[in-house]
């Protein structure tokens, strides 16, 4: 049942789906062909996953906000719980889709494989979990418009504020260094475990918030 609601979300944005698939395939090739910087290649999956996930989710949320289809679905045996679970599954399926597109792209441009390792993918997975783990419950609680403005605000603020903040931090001369009592593999595994835990905690919170909403 859950997968049908995920398919529904993809159908809502079917007009943009082809563009997103092409973007996920072409963007890494275009960016990688214009840079020799390995650190940038390492960040590529993270960057593309975040951009595409946010664009996809906001697009679907916009369609949800202008129709009352969610109420219709919740009046059927799907229930509110399934509706929310499907939103999280949608984010996950999109994540896997973008990753798959980058694996395909890496066959065309082998240098892209630099960023396709368990560490980089785990970091992206953790960031997506954190971002949507906060975003989805907020959206359910405050509505699409509030969340959209938060995103616009972040999109404008980050490029301007990140540099000065980093310079200020470096000027303080503070160095945090600690080592976890687990191996490198264990640390990577922990990232995945944290991501899954965050997702489930967020999903539980979203279900509870949505249960109280009048549709």
């Amino acid at each position: 049942m859950l997968i049908n609601l995920v398919i529904k979300d993809f159908m809502l944005m079917k007009k943009y789906l082809l563009f997103l698939v092409l973007f996920a395939l072409a963007a890494p090739i275009v960016i990688a062909s214009q840079t020799k910087d390995d650190s940038l290649l390492f960040l590529m999956p993270f960057y593309l996953i975040m951009i595409t996930e946010i664009a996809t989710y906001l697009q679907v949320s916009k369609f949800e906000s202008i129709s009352r289809g969610a109420a219709f679905i919740c009046a059927t045996p799907y229930t509110r719980r399934t509706f929310i679970e499907a939103k999280y599954l949608f984010v996950f399926v999109t994540f896997v889709g973008i990753l798959f597109a980058q694996i395909v792209a890496s066959f065309l441009l082998p240098s892209l494989k630099t960023g396709l390792n368990l560490n980089a993918v785990g970091a992206a997975f953790l960031m997506v979990s954190l971002l949507f783990g906060v975003l989805i419950p907020c959206q359910i609680k405050f509505g699409f418009d509030v969340v959209r403005w938060i995103f616009f605000g972040l999109a404008f603020l980050i490029p301007f504020s990140l540099g000065p903040i980093l310079r200020w931090y470096q000027s303080l001369g503070i160095h945090f260094s600690f080592s976890l009592p687990v191996s490198q593999t264990g640390q990577i595994l922990l990232m995945y475990v944290f991501a899954v835990v965050i997702t489930f905690v967020s999903m539980y919170a979203s279900i509870k918030i949505y249960e109280k909403k009048d549709l």
């Binding site: 049942m1 049908n4 609601l5 398919i7 529904k8 159908m11 809502l12 369609f63 129709s67 009352r68 289809g69 109420a71 219709f72 679905i73 009046a75 059927t76 045996p77 799907y78 229930t79």
Partner: peptide, 30 residues
């Protein structure tokens, strides 16, 4: 809910979907 059919006043559909697509979303629930 499996035994209830309903018709709401304003339709409550996703306008951007076709009749068949909307049916494909709803049908598996029952």
């Amino acid at each position: 809910k499996n035994r209830i059919g309903f018709v709401l006043d304003e339709g409550y559909f996703y306008g951007m979907l076709t009749v068949k697509e909307m049916k494909n979303v709803i049908a598996p629930a029952y």
